[in-house]
């Protein structure tokens, strides 16, 4: 294990308790994942691919039935260091409403550090800092039910940041949000990754969210299917399609154009796609441009 590796999952298998008369079914079936410190990883996969189960392995909410998960070299099976692991690896869940404990924003953010037994004065500082980090400081005295979904999700993230974690795992944090809320949340986690160096594992099924990550891991049927930089992963359109996975719309369009005999590079974003297509169009006459 190298120094760089923050979370290591080695040959992880997992099966939920089978229903009576059913064969146990492995949700995870020999997963190997290594996440480096400071990385921004997107974990992709469709429903039932095991990605959410994997997320709960990272902070010992679930323990592997086979194989091992290490966080900073600590085995997640070890109950004595359970809270050490959970403090280092925070988990943000899908539904923002169901994660907030207190009826005042700042008291909710304080919940984590309070559990850790941090002295009151320091909790105050951590809460203020966490709220500023997610841009919700002005709402510190609001009631959560008065906030929008995106704001609530940012409060949930602040609640994790107040524990001063080294890694935040987000399990489809934008699935229940409107487009504006999605942007708010994504901007926040990108900023946390860049400015505070917090390792981010973003579990999602939105391709455009995955494109912005530093690395993409695609899971399918309890296995890791692909892993690499977004461009590397999404250029394998055929393989992804074979596993009923989508690719970003821009990639899809250039892929089809390639199939129609236009040699062009694989694109990930709308801008890239526009550029690639524009190269084939005759330049517009100057007059019609305005």
């Amino acid at each position: 294990m190298s120094d760089q590796e923050f979370i290591t999952a080695r040959d992880v298998t997992f099966a939920y308790e089978p229903d009576e008369g059913c064969e146990p079914h492995n949700v995870l079936d020999g997963v190997n994942i290594a996440i480096r410190r400071g990385e921004f990883v997107a974990l992709l996969g469709h429903n039932g691919s095991g990605k959410s189960t994997m997320a709960k392995m990272f902070n010992a909410m679930l323990l592997p039935t086979g194989g091992k998960v290490f966080v900073e070299g600590m085995d997640t099976v070890d109950e004595a260091i359970l809270y050490e692991i959970r403090r280092r690896v925070g988990l943000v869940l899908q539904n923002p409403d169901n994660q907030l404990v207190a009826s005042v924003v700042e008291e909710d953010v304080a919940f984590g550090p309070e559990n850790l037994g941090v002295p009151p004065q320091e909790i105050r500082e951590r809460v203020d800092e966490a709220l500023k980090a997610v841009g919700m400081y002005d709402f510190r005295l609001s009631a959560p039910y008065k906030l929008s979904g995106g704001q609530k999700q940012r409060i949930a993230i602040a609640g994790i940041i107040a524990m001063q974690p080294e890694c935040i795992v987000l399990d489809e944090p934008t699935a229940m949000l409107d487009p504006r809320g999605r942007t708010e949340v994504l901007d926040t986690i990108h900023r946390l990754n860049e400015e505070k160096g917090i390792t981010i594992v973003l579990i999602t099924h939105y391709m455009d969210e995955a494109v912005q990550a530093g690395r993409v891991i695609v899971m399918d049927g309890g296995h890791v299917l692909l892993s690499g930089e977004p461009r590397e992963v999404f250029s394998q359109v055929e393989l992804l399609k074979k596993h009923q996975l989508d690719v970003p719309q821009a990639t899809e369009l250039t892929y089809r154009l390639q199939g129609m005999g236009f040699p062009m590079p694989c694109t990930l974003t709308t801008e890239e796609c526009v550029e690639a297509i524009a190269a084939y169009l005759p330049p517009l006459p100057a007059a019609s441009r305005t």
Binding site: L93, P120, A156
Partner: peptide, 18 residues
């Protein structure tokens, strides 16, 4: 689950912000 993720383990060793 969210509470457990935030290291909740009852009142023991817990502090209060206020």
């Amino acid at each position: 689950m969210a509470m457990e993720c935030r290291c909740y383990h009852g009142g023991e060793g817990r502090t209060k912000m206020k």
